[in-house]
């Protein structure tokens, strides 16, 4: 039974990925940037699963599992960094974090 064209699925993945990219580019709050990165990772996983389902192979889902593990590690370290930034600078604005800049 034919369900949908594979290009529709890939298009949805592309839309989600680019929404995440727009979020990273437009937001100045570091928490929202992390959330947008999560959206992008999820969209990449959707593309993998779609490809795996196209070829009837389990490899796409295996790749999704690795993306999941990577996202979990990235989020834990990223949120720890966000908490440190908040405790030391009392701001979430990425443009305030310029202590390493040469003046």
């Amino acid at each position: 039974m034919a369900v949908v064209n594979i290009d529709r699925v890939l298009f949805v993945a592309a839309v989600l990925f680019l929404l995440g990219l727009t979020g990273v580019l437009t937001r100045k709050n570091i928490l929202f940037m992390l959330i947008s990165i999560e959206i992008m990772l999820n969209a990449a996983g959707l593309a993998f699963v779609a490809a795996g389902s196209k070829w009837h192979q389990p490899d796409g889902q295996a790749m999704f599992l690795f993306i999941l593990a990577m996202a979990a590690a990235e989020v834990s370290v990223g949120l720890a960094l966000v908490m440190q930034i908040w405790h030391q600078h009392k701001t979430m604005d990425v443009e305030d974090l310029n202590k390493l800049k040469d003046e």
Binding site: V3, N5, I6, A50, G52, H56, G60, A62, L65
Partner: peptide, 18 residues
């Protein structure tokens, strides 16, 4: 691209591959 032929990839296959 051609239409997707739905075939469920079971957890068993995924686990064997992993």
């Amino acid at each position: 691209l051609p239409a997707l032929q739905l075939a469920v990839v079971t957890p068993r296959q995924v686990a064997l591959s992993l």
